[in-house]
Simulated assay, not measured.
Amino acid sequence: MDVQHRVVILGAGYAGMAAAVQLAARAGRRDGVQVTVVNAQERFTERMRLHMTATGRQLAELSVPELLEGTGARFVRGWVTAVDADARTVLVDDGRVLPYDTLVYGLGGVADTSAVPGAEDHAYTLNSAQDAELLADRLGRLRGGTVVVGGSGLTGVESAAEIAERYPELDVVLLGRTEPGASMNARARAYVRAALDRLGVKVRTGVEVVKVRPGGVELAGGESIAADAVLWTSGTRVSPLAAVAGLTVDPRGRVVTDAALRSVSHPEVYAIGDAAAIRQGYGVMHGTCQGGMPTGVHAALSIDRVLRGKRPKPFRFGYYHTPVSLGRGDAVVQFTRPDDGPRRFCLTGRAAVRYKETVTASPWPTYGRMKKLPASGAFWPRGGRFTRVRDAG
């Protein structure tokens, strides 16, 4: 094929894969367009299930090349070490230089272990399947003791519940500044707290971890908590590559985009998922799979429109729900307004478990649908259902 336009997608997470499959199904079918996906590993990381991996549960082995099979997109395995925005090239750790005409920047966020001394060296994270497996190995060798989960956000809640249920002989302590489920309505928040109490999780809020040691954590005020393992889930950070490349970034290092998800400083670069600072009417989006996949789809649609000589359309997104597992047999789903504020309605118990499992599994049928995509629409999951979004030419 005589390549006339090279699209390079950095990162094969939920957003990157959505962009790759969607774009390859469209533009990749035309002569002269080459879609390349760069990722450090062939294994696809199911970030929504890493708290399960961390307790030793066996999940399906998903391969990025296999997920791309039949799309026409090519896969390059390697760590991205630099982006030259002026030369429009990407440098991979094995020395390869990948030129691009359009770049999709989807290098997602990881736990911010740099914010607290000792967290980088002494805390476990859920940044990857390998990281989660390291924690699973540690937990599997304990015959008692204490596990501290630093961060009372949703990842911390899911992890604490999963560990407590899987290893009832362990004392699980959840530490954070805010109440678990703080963004939910009163009923859902009370349900989360009751579930954690039932599982024996000791919750301490209004506290700040100031140091992680080999044998525990230190809190502001001087108190220490001994621990046989510390899991860090508090805060996220993104790769500094975008800032080093000269792209305009926000204070957290995320690429600042225009309404069509293009970099405001380099319009040939699209930013998606956790890597992007995307402003909507209610504010800047926060990173979730719920929002990440639609950004990937929209970037693909925008690139396809530009390749057809048309202008990209503005991205519009509203949140729909917040599903949280509370062990294998319990969950809560908080339905939300578009700005992510809680609605009055929520699901709990087995109904919430079924709902969340449907949502968690939804990327795979979505990608399959994208591979067979007609020219008129895109699919992504919404509330456990698939919503067709038409691109009106």
Results as ranks from 00 to 15, higher is better:
Asp250Asn: 12
Val209Tyr: 02
Lys356Met: 09
Ala242Ser: 02
Thr178Lys: 14
Trp232Ile: 10
Thr236Ser: 14
Glu223Met: 00
Arg354Phe: 12
Arg308Gln: 08
Trp232Pro: 04
Ala194Phe: 05
Phe75Asn: 01
Val201Glu: 04
Asp274Ile: 12
Leu91Arg: 13
His5Asp: 07
Val306Asn: 08
Asp171Thr: 15
Ala352Tyr: 02
Arg305Ala: 15
Ala12Met: 10
Ala227Thr: 03
Ala186Leu: 13
Val157Asn: 07
Gln58Leu: 13
Leu196Val: 04
Leu59Pro: 08
Val172Ser: 05
Ala24Gln: 00
Gly222Asp: 03
Ala27Leu: 00
His51Tyr: 15
Pro214Gln: 09
Gly329Phe: 05
Arg26Gln: 14
Tyr105Ile: 03
Thr146Asn: 02
Leu98His: 05
Val264Phe: 10
Gly253Tyr: 04
Leu199Lys: 09
Arg337Asp: 12
Arg388Asp: 02
Leu301Cys: 14
Thr71Glu: 02
Asp304Cys: 01
Glu133Ile: 05
Pro365Trp: 10
Tyr355Met: 14
Leu98Asp: 09
Pro99Ser: 11
Arg213Phe: 02
Pro294Met: 11
Pro363Arg: 09
Glu61Ala: 15
Ile272Tyr: 06
Ile303Thr: 08
Cys346Gly: 05
Trp380Ile: 03
Asp340Pro: 06
Ala15Pro: 07
Gly273Val: 13
His51Val: 10
Asp31Cys: 00
Gln334Lys: 04
Gly393Trp: 05
Tyr167Gly: 04
Thr233Gln: 02
Ser183Asp: 11
Asp171His: 15
Leu373His: 11
Phe379Val: 11
Trp79Ala: 06
His321Asp: 15
Leu142Asp: 01
Val35Ile: 14
Leu10His: 04
Tyr270Arg: 07
Val90Met: 04
Arg311Ala: 15
Val255Asp: 02
Gln130Asn: 06
Pro314Thr: 14
Thr36Ser: 07
Val324His: 04
Glu179Phe: 08
Leu154Tyr: 15
Ser325Cys: 11
Ser265Trp: 13
Val249His: 06
Ile163Glu: 12
Ala186Cys: 03
Asp94Phe: 12
Gly215Gln: 12
Glu357Asp: 14
Val92Pro: 00
Ala260Glu: 14
Ala129Asp: 11
Pro240Asn: 01
Lys202Val: 14
Gly368Tyr: 11
Thr257Met: 12
Val104His: 06
Ala378Gln: 06
Arg29Asp: 00
Ala190Leu: 10
Asp250Ile: 07
Ala73Lys: 00
Pro338Ala: 01
Gln290Trp: 10
Arg343His: 01
Glu133Tyr: 02
Ala54Asp: 09
Ser159Tyr: 08
Gln22Met: 10
Arg47Leu: 07
Asp101Asn: 10
Pro312Arg: 11
Glu223Asn: 01
